[in-house]
Structure formats: C-alpha cells, structure tokens
Amino acid sequence: MTRRRATLIGGIAILLWSSLALFSVGAAPVPPFQLNALCFAVGAGVGLGWMWAGGRRVRLPRLAPRVWALGVVGLFGYHALYFTALRNAPPAAAGLIAYLWPLLIVIFSGFLPGERLRWPHLAGATVSLIGVAVLLGGGDTLGAGNALGYAAAFACALFWSGYSVLSRRVGDVPTDCVMLFCAATALLSVPFHLAFEETAWPVGAAGWLSVLALGLGPVGLAFYVWDVGVKRGDIQLLGVLSYAAPLLSTLLLILTGVAAAEESLALAALLVVCGAALAAWGSARR
C-alpha cells in the first residue's frame, strides 16, 4: 500500500468523526459510559466485517502488554476524559482544548524515525488551530472553577495524540487487532456505567439508529481506517486535516437544524482550509 493511499484511507476517519456530535445528540438520553459500551460493542462487530471484507479469517495474534495498554488507553481513556471535560467545564472551551490533539500529532510525529517536522506543518497546524478557536470559542472564558474540566480536556488531547503517534511504533500490529481494543473498551465501560450512571435507553427508532450509526461510523470504522493512516500514511498531514472534523461537524448540525448558523463559521472554514493546504504543501515538498 502506498503512502498516499494510506493517507486517503486515514482521512475517511475525519469524515466519520464529523458525524459524532449529530448522532450523539440523537442517542440522548443515554449516559456517556453506557453509550460507550453500546457503541464500542458495535465497533467490535465492525472489526469482523473489516476482516471479512479483506478475505481474512478471524485469527488474531497474541499482543504484548504494551500494545494492549496503548490500544485500550487510547480508545477508552480518550472518551472517558472527553466526557469528564464536558461535564466539568464550558463545552466550547473544553472542546477547544481537547482539539489540541491534531496540533500535538503534528509536533510529536516529528520525532518518529523517518519523519521530519517542517515549518509548513507547524504553520498550517497553527492556522487551523486558530480556525477551531474561532469556531468553538463561543464567548466562553477560562475560569479557575473549571480547572478539573480543563485539565481533563488537555489530558484528552495528550491521550489521543499519543495513541496516534505511538501506533506508528507498533506498525507491525495488524489493524484487525483494533477489534480487540474496541471489545475491551466496551467491557471496561460497563462497570464505570454501573458505578457512576443511571441506565437510560435510546428513545424510539431514531435513538437506536443513532446508537447503531455511532458504532458503525465514528466509534467503529473510523478507528480501523485511522489505524491504517497513522501507521502507513502521512501522519503529519492527517494531523492537520483533522481540524476539519469540528468544522464539518458544525456544518452537519446546521444542515440538520440542530444548531444555528453563525457569522464566525465562514472565517473558521477559511482558516481551516488554508491551514490544511499549507501542511499539504509542506508534505508535497518531500
């Protein structure tokens, strides 16, 4: 598989993650950890389809403890911290801090063997980050009373960027093994749900379809294609292109009537596109 093709496959995850907010709204009032358990169970099933589509039998290798730790901490840890951040800080500000992970991917990837961090990558990531700030700012200000939420959001960015970059270090582990990480995340979410939440099921067919869509897409197939992208593709370009996820997510919410259009959207779109183009130019110079 060529580097360019792997990058394109990884980019599918960004498109799928743009629907995360929309389907999460549709899955209300299911609490976070219960939703985690349901969606990642479906995501594990997606792994079976992934192997079947590739003509492979379900025969997964034994994984080293460090690989298990990376996969489970990356998937389960990220979502646990993300939900904690949204509960303990203004959502817009917490979301902005959490979305530092694409910028951190670009920076951390420069330390990988065979990679080189160029100034267009840093400049593009910075411009795109400003675009996300315009999009998610929403007038919220940082406050000391929200310290737990902001700390969780920053840890969330560290977890996912660390997972994405370190996945390159275990590039010999087949993408099929993501199914195991999804299954482990689903199982771990159950005791957390029972300990901290009250059970609530989706409302009607629309609610159940939203849960299914989450498990099939942004909390399912997205992890498999992302694994291909970060292991074999241009991880720096993928990091910058990831800033399109909150932008596309907002556009989807507006088109479906869940959110209202804002004047800052056009400026945010321009900044995100310019940042991605700058990073793409930096990669093309290779």
Rank of each mutant, 00 (worst) to 15 (best):
G77L: 12
L81V: 08
G45N: 13
C182D: 06
W201K: 12
V30P: 07
L166D: 00
G47R: 11
E198I: 13
G54E: 15
G55I: 10
W52N: 01
A222S: 14
L75H: 00
L212D: 04
Q34R: 03
G143I: 05
P191W: 15
A80N: 07
A13P: 06
P102Y: 05
A151Y: 08
L248N: 02
A279L: 07
P246L: 06
V228W: 03
L271M: 05
G71H: 03
R169C: 00
G55D: 14
G47K: 02
V170K: 00
T256R: 12
V240S: 15
A64K: 00
F76P: 02
V225Y: 03
G162R: 01
E197P: 15
L15G: 05
F196Q: 15
L15K: 05
A279T: 03
S242P: 14
G45A: 09
L22H: 09
V178I: 12
V46K: 05
F192T: 15
A205C: 03
L214T: 15
G77E: 07
A195C: 07
G74I: 02
A27K: 14
R285A: 13
V67K: 03
F111P: 02
R3G: 10
A41M: 11
G114H: 05
S18H: 12
V170M: 01
A280L: 12
G131D: 10
W119C: 01
L271A: 03
A144R: 10
A184Q: 12
A213R: 14
R5F: 07
W119D: 02
A37V: 12
F33R: 02
A80M: 14
L117A: 07
G220L: 08
L103I: 00
G110V: 08
L237Q: 07
F83Y: 09
C156N: 12
I97K: 06
T141L: 08
F159E: 02
V134H: 14
G10V: 06
L70K: 01
V225A: 12
A13V: 04
R87M: 13
F154A: 04
C182V: 01
C177L: 06
A284L: 09
L270G: 15
V190M: 07
V211L: 10
L103M: 08
P113Y: 02
N88H: 13
C177T: 14
W50Q: 04
R232W: 06
W50L: 11
W101D: 09
A85V: 14
